[in-house]
C-alpha cells in the first residue's frame, strides 16, 4: 500500500533521473536569464556610453567599435540603451509579476475558501479580465501621463484575475481533502487553515504561473512602450528603443533587431523555464514521449 501510494510524491525524482539530453534547452535558458539579470544589475559597468546622451553629430551610425550597436536618430549609443533597457524590462516584469501573484493569491484564497464571497468575486474578475491592457494603458496615459505606474497598472489589472482563478481552483479542491476537514474538526482557526494547510500547496502552481506572468509582463511593457502608451520615450526600454528605431528600420535594421533579439530571447528563456517547472511540479501535464 505504502509503496504504491508514495509513487506520486516520488515522481519528481523520476523526472530528475531522465536522460540529460532533453534538458539542454532549459539549461541554456537558465544561463541566458542569469546573463540578463547580471546585465540588468551591473549594466553601467559594461558600457561607458550614456544612454541619455544626445549627440546630433553622430546620428544613425552603423555599428562600430565605439558604438557596438550603432547610434539612434538622436545620436544616442544603442548598446548602452539596450543594456539599460534590460534593467527597465526586468524591473517592470518582476514588479508586475510579483504584484499580480500577491494580489491574485489574496483574492483567490478568499474566493476559494468562502463560498459566499466566491460568486461575487469571480464575476468581478470576469469583468476585469474583459478590459484589454492596451485600451486601459491608453486611458491611463490620457489621464495621468506616461509613467512607470501606469504601465504597471496596465499590466497587473488584466493579469491578476488569471492568478485568482488558479488559486481559487486549487483551494476549492483542497477544501474537500480529508486533512483539511481534519483541521476543521480540530477547531483550527480559518486563517491558520488557509495559511498553514492550504497556502503551501498553492505555491507550486503559483510559481509556474508566475513565470508565465513574468514573460507576459515583459512583453506587454515592450508592446505598450512601442505604441507610445508605456514608459516616457527618454527612458531606455526595449519597447521604446524599437519604437524610435521604427522610422529608420530600412536604413538601420539593427535599431529594432538588437533590442528585439534581447526581448525575444528573454521571454523565450522564461517560458522554457516555466515549462520545465511545470513538468517538475506536475508530471501529469507533461507531454508523453
Amino acid at each position: 500500500m505504502q509503496k504504491v501510494q508514495d509513487l506520486p510524491g516520488k515522481a519528481p525524482a523520476a523526472a530528475r533521473s531522465r536522460p540529460r539530453s532533453r534538458d539542454w534547452p532549459v539549461r541554456v535558458a537558465c544561463a541566458f536569464l542569469v546573463f540578463i539579470l547580471i546585465v540588468a544589475v551591473v549594466g553601467p559597468f559594461l558600457t561607458s556610453g550614456d544612454p541619455l546622451h544626445i549627440n546630433a553629430a553622430n546620428r544613425i551610425k552603423p555599428p562600430s567599435a565605439e558604438h557596438l550597436f550603432g547610434t539612434d536618430a538622436m545620436g544616442r549609443d544603442v548598446f548602452a540603451r539596450v543594456i539599460y533597457g534590460a534593467r527597465t524590462s526586468i524591473i517592470v516584469g518582476f514588479v508586475a509579476a510579483l504584484a499580480s501573484l500577491l494580489l491574485g493569491l489574496a483574492v483567490g484564497l478568499l474566493a476559494g475558501y468562502f463560498p459566499l464571497a466566491d460568486a461575487t468575486i469571480m464575476r468581478v474578475m470576469d469583468g476585469i479580465m474583459s478590459i484589454p491592457s492596451i485600451v486601459l494603458a491608453v486611458a491611463l496615459v490620457a489621464i495621468t501621463g506616461a509613467n512607470l505606474g501606469t504601465v504597471l497598472i496596465a499590466i497587473i489589472v488584466p493579469e491578476f484575475p488569471r492568478v485568482v482563478r488558479l488559486v481559487r481552483g486549487v483551494i476549492l479542491s483542497l477544501r474537500s481533502e480529508p486533512y483539511v476537514e481534519a483541521a476543521i474538526s480540530l477547531a483550527t482557526p480559518t486563517w491558520r487553515i488557509l495559511f498553514r494547510h492550504m497556502l503551501p500547496n498553492t505555491l507550486a502552481p503559483l510559481i509556474v504561473q508566475g513565470s508565465f506572468v513574468l514573460a507576459s509582463a515583459i512583453l506587454t511593457e515592450a508592446a505598450l512602450s512601442f505604441l507610445g502608451v508605456g514608459l516616457p520615450p527618454e527612458i531606455p526600454s526595449w519597447g521604446n528603443i524599437m519604437a524610435e528605431g521604427r522610422t529608420y528600420f530600412q536604413l538601420r535594421p539593427g535599431l529594432i533587431f538588437f533590442p528585439g533579439i534581447f526581448l525575444a530571447l528573454t521571454v523565450l528563456s522564461i517560458n522554457l523555464i516555466g515549462d520545465a517547472l511545470r513538468d517538475r511540479f506536475d508530471p501529469k501535464l507533461e507531454k508523453r514521449h
Binding site: 501510494q5 510524491g9 481533502e177 480529508p178 486533512y179 483541521a183
Partner: peptide, 10 residues
Amino acid sequence: FQDPFRSLNA
C-alpha cells in the same frame, strides 16, 4: 477518516 494518505498534511 478513511484514507490515511490524504488525512495528513504532507
